[in-house]
């Protein structure tokens, strides 16, 4: 999976990420951990790779990172912010 690039723009500001989805005309934001995942999702990633990013950045247990990543990815998917050709 990776972030949809068509009609979606995002920018990191003070550790948070602001996302503009032109297709739905909405602004969204993520916190710091969300920004870590957003950064990784600029390229094709697996859930495991995203969870590893949280482990490396925050030193949290792998199972917590996996659960949190799956929850966050579900939020992104619900907002149609992912390219889901092969997730």
């Amino acid at each position: 999976m990776k972030l949809r690039t068509n009609s979606v723009s995002w920018r990191e500001i003070d550790g948070e990420t602001v996302i503009l989805d032109l297709s739905s005309s909405t602004y969204l934001k993520t916190n710091a951990a969300g920004s870590t995942i957003m950064r990784l999702l600029s390229e094709e990633r697996t859930t495991a790779e995203l969870a590893d990013g949280l482990v490396e950045e925050y030193g949290i247990p792998a199972d917590q990172a996996t659960a949190d990543t799956e929850t966050f990815v579900a939020m992104l998917r619900e907002r149609n912010l992912l390219d889901t050709a092969d997730s």
């Binding site: 602001v18 996302i19 503009l20 032109l22 005309s25 909405t26 602004y27 969204l28 934001k29 993520t30 916190n31 710091a32 951990a33 969300g34 870590t36 995942i37 949280l54 925050y58 030193g59 949290i60 949190d68 990543t69 929850t71 966050f72 939020m75 992104l76 907002r79």
Partner: peptide, 15 residues
């Protein structure tokens, strides 16, 4: 940095 689980929030519409 204290860890907070990743969250996605809607800020509002462009309009």
């Amino acid at each position: 940095m204290a860890y907070q689980p990743p969250v996605l929030e809607e800020v509002g519409s462009v309009r």
